[in-house]
Design a binder for these strands. Structure first.
Lengths: 347, 347
DNA sequence: TTGATTTATTGGAACGTTCCATTTATAGGC
DNA sequence: GCCTATAAATGGAACGTTCCAATAAATCAA
């Protein structure tokens, strides 16, 4: 055990009675080597317990076969689903994605990006942490390293983005709520330092306006994008003089929180208060009641991001088109009609 | 932009008018350098847009500051929670963990491990994929690379394991069920190629035996460790002549599936059929009804695994003690008394 | 046979760091 | 002023690959 000084290609060469260059060629699967020689070498590789040293190789070769995937919140199942989509396409391209979590912390993100770059990754797929400064990716851009954003974009950045059509999704969901008869609507969760927030809120507002809901009848409550945030939003909203009867939530986690808080107050989500989520994570359909949500096809976005990255690497460019993924509203059981319309409120 | 030929410490040296050795020293934060010189160098580093090349450094230095974390199912929130725990301790040690997903695929696992090793990681924390062959980690062991398993162990391996006390957890949960008056019990989900499965099932059996449940009154249904698996298990069980009235599930995902399937049949989880989960993921407390589950402290296990790894790296050993984490049963609302047994207890 | 071609193999010079052994500059003691 | 001790900076040899240019061996055309 504690095997002394790890084996190098020179050890293999000695063992197999060939030159180091031959070994190198075999390792790269070159067709130039006579099959019997290759076999001999491969045997020697086994015998000495050799581990390829990519650091050494990277010193000469331009780039590695690893790409970094930087995610802002690993505990959000949404990102796990996206990661799985990416992995599917990278795997078939012989690329190994390494995932790193920033936990929404820009400082941590800085460290992670630095580490990934030092490691010599071939490209970066990033879902930026909240509060990322515009200059945070300058380094990477000047290094000419391919990078694509997923889900979130930065205010004024030329980096390509793969994201769902947030604006349309929010419009769809809001129209659904209004169609159910709701007249006092809320938008729950998220915060204005996120571009996505503005997109979704924009869709919400546009639908309200188009369908004749006065802006004084809309309520916007910022908050954490988590269950806890949802709970807080609902509390705030119900404390108002004329509380809303329905809410579009920034994402499913917030929606789950809202439903939880409703239950705690003895209100039935869906019947007493309508709620729509965003993202349509797998749990959405298993909740009680099942959550109506805007499906964004997370795995599909992941695949798309991976494809774009692959293309950028191959064509050694750092430019690419944005990609706005289609969305659709999945109607389940969390939005009944407005009950109070007509008869004051019961709560 | 597109700055060709990336800058090296030689470029910095030229820019700052010092030698490459000096630059290297500054990079490592050596106290040997005069502060003004260091400042000058640091400025030059900024100016040329330098990116540290860890590959080159690794060629001389023994090991890097990255450790690999290989996970068998990223979409299981349990692992995300564990990952977060690990990250907490690694971060403060200046180590960046790279996460890779194997999706329960031993072949993929092989690739991932290879890639991580080539990358020159300082250590590996692995939750092995189902169906991993005993020899899969031979390579890593002979290379003298520190490795620890989490959650799962391999049949006959000397690699240290960080895992919860599965046996005790299952016993606790089963005793709880029996205490509620249930006499026909099931164990749902998991499969016998997992050591964990035998541990949990063993605890279940031991409790049954100790508390006077005949083994013909117990039912064991293997199945996927997912919601889907849970649904299937329940269907199978209810199709029996004398179906069980309560089940211990292999993990929370299975339990969620069971509850879902119960609802679909018009049965109320908790009242009509008792179910207890394993792992106590965050969703457990938010479910309807809230799920009684064996809490294993996932984040704590992650932290512990990280600490063990850190110690192994520092003491450059490849040995470490196993660590069996404490468990406790969190009683919520998913297990009522057995209704069919006359009247059982009043709780 | 001889030279030309093709097929296999090989030595050596990079790649960008680290680190040891030196050198050079600075300060102190007398 | 000289010698010594300390502080600061430096050159050069690794580290384990890749890749080019060169060589050696085998094949072929004449």
């Amino acid at each position: 055990m504690a095997s002394r000084a790890k084996a190098t290609i020179l050890d293999i060469a000695r063992e197999a009675g060939v030159s180091k260059s031959t070994v190198s060629l075999v390792l790269q699967g070159s067709g130039l080597i006579r099959p019997e020689t290759a076999l001999k070498v491969r045997k020697a590789i086994e015998d000495v317990g050799y581990v390829y040293n990519r650091s050494a190789a990277n010193l000469r070769k331009a780039h590695s076969n690893v790409i970094g995937m930087v995610i802002n919140d690993l505990t959000n199942p949404f990102f796990a689903e996206m990661a799985v989509g990416m992995e599917r396409v990278f795997q078939s391209a012989g690329i190994v994605p390494f995932i790193a979590n920033t936990a929404e912390n820009p400082v941590r993100q800085e460290e992670v990006l630095k580490s990934l770059m030092e490691q010599g990754v071939a490209g970066l797929i990033v879902s930026p942490a909240r509060g990322t400064t515009p200059g945070a990716f300058r380094r990477i851009e000047t290094a000419g390293l391919p990078i694509v954003f997923t889900m979130r974009r930065l205010p004024e950045s030329r980096i390509p983005v793969i994201a769902p059509d947030n604006h349309r999704g929010a419009k769809l969901a809001t129209a659904h709520l209004i169609g159910k008869g709701h007249r006092r609507l809320a938008f729950f969760g998220g915060s204005s330092d996120l571009v996505v927030y503005h997109e979704r809120l924009g869709g919400f507002r546009e639908a309200c306006e188009a369908l004749g809901i006065a802006s004084r009848d809309t309520l916007v409550v910022e908050g954490e994008t988590s269950r806890r945030g949802g709970i807080a939003c609902l509390e705030t909203a119900l404390a108002m003089a004329e509380p809303p009867t329905a809410a579009l939530c920034f994402n499913d986690a917030v929606a789950f929180g809202v439903m939880l808080a409703l239950r705690k107050r003895g209100l039935e989500p869906g019947a007493d208060f309508a709620v729509v989520g965003f993202d349509d994570v797998v749990e959405a359909q298993h909740y009680m009641p099942a959550l109506t949500s805007v499906a964004v096809d997370s795995a599909g976005l992941g695949e798309r991001a991976a494809h774009v990255m692959l293309k950028m690497i191959q064509s050694r460019t750092t430019r690419a088109e944005d990609h706005i993924g289609a969305v659709n509203l999945v109607v389940r059981d969390s939005c009944g009609p407005d009950r109070r319309a007509g008869m004051g409120d019961a709560a």
